[in-house]
Design a protein around this nucleic acid. Structure first.
Lengths: 198, 198
DNA sequence: GTCTATATTTGGATAGAC
DNA sequence: GTCTATCCAAATATAGAC
């Protein structure tokens, strides 16, 4: 049983996994290469064999976070078959994620706050994730609106975008206030969005 | 006419003003003391006479941003006397701010993304600003809800908090997408929040 | 109060042996 | 591929002259 087996993956995967944790918890600019390689147990030389620069690792970090998040969301949502339950459950999932551990807000918004060059691949990756996130929400909204005639006057993309903005608003406020009340308010807003009284 | 007269303020004020611009545009961690003093035209020694550390400047940066923003908002809103117009105008102001210049999202959320120590005075200052921002919104919502009997069943703090979350959600999405559509969506959400159809 | 000069650590990145 | 040793620039902060 060699080192790679214990760590369940290649050195490159280990670096990405360790760095992702550090980037999310400490921030991108506040995390140095030295700390990453110390935590990952590899040398500086090995690091630069796999990553041409820190920026490249930054992009791969966001790719991993996006993949993990969308995979998890899709998997959990696929187990809920009632469209209304699915619609309402999404916010509960977000709240549950916050109270679990190490919550530090939206990794993609945080990176966008740190990387100011609007042409940076890092910012493109963040935007790309938001599109994926938006698509998941759109699907779930579409399922709900098609499920009952009472929703026939609702526009799918409009409701989906409102849903997304409510979600991001809750996420950001929860991080600032270090409190879950924004998610409780978001739940009410999501009900109101589909015609129920707040 | 000495240097201070030209710069309209003391050296300390100049540093805060210059640093505020750099912190907001480039981010806090990405902006070094050297760049700040070069741009402000002062020496390193002078800098550390006025600020014990970079952290202290970071706090004063947020204090200035908060003061400027709340002062500006209160002043503009005080010129609108119709409660409904005031309610709707707020989002227009936010959108106008974005399209003006150098928009980089919420300075306080950005700092919170960079400074991860939850006990840091910087994070406390960000939270403090959100409370001030929330209070401004609460006042404006209260004025509206008291202005007409049709709002008598609405709860002021609830509507105000929803308003705030919508605003922050729009702000964050606008920065990620580099687009104003979130503000247009926010306007509809704000109408829906007070019982109008989206 | 402001300046120059400097201390010290850390940043990202590379060279060359194994 | 991985390692050690090293480069160089930039980070925050201080000392001491004027």
């Amino acid at each position: 049983m060699n080192k790679e087996t214990i760590q369940r993956g290649t050195a490159k995967e280990t670096i990405i996994r360790i760095a992702s944790d550090l980037f999310y918890r400490q921030g991108y600019n506040a995390t140095g290469i030295q700390q990453i390689i110390d935590a990952a147990g590899v040398s500086k030389g090995a690091f630069y064999t796999h990553f041409k620069s820190k920026d490249v690792l930054g992009v791969e970090y966001l790719q991993k976070m996006s993949k993990d998040e969308t995979t998890h969301l899709k998997q959990v949502l696929s187990e809920i078959h009632d469209p209304y339950k699915k619609y309402m459950q999404f916010n509960t999932l977000m709240k549950g994620w916050m109270v679990s551990t190490n919550y530090r807000g939206c990794a993609f918004a945080n990176m966008t706050a740190e990387v100011t060059d609007r042409n940076s691949p890092i910012r493109k990756e963040a935007k790309f994730h938001y599109e994926a996130f938006r698509a998941i929400i759109r699907d779930l909204v579409e399922d709900l609106l098609k499920s009952d005639k009472k929703y026939e006057d609702f526009d799918v993309q409009y409701v989906a975008d409102q849903f997304m903005m409510i979600t991001i608003g809750a996420l950001t406020n929860a991080e600032i206030y270090q409190d879950t009340w924004p998610y409780d308010h978001a739940e009410k807003a999501l009900r109101q969005l589909i015609g129920e009284k707040g």
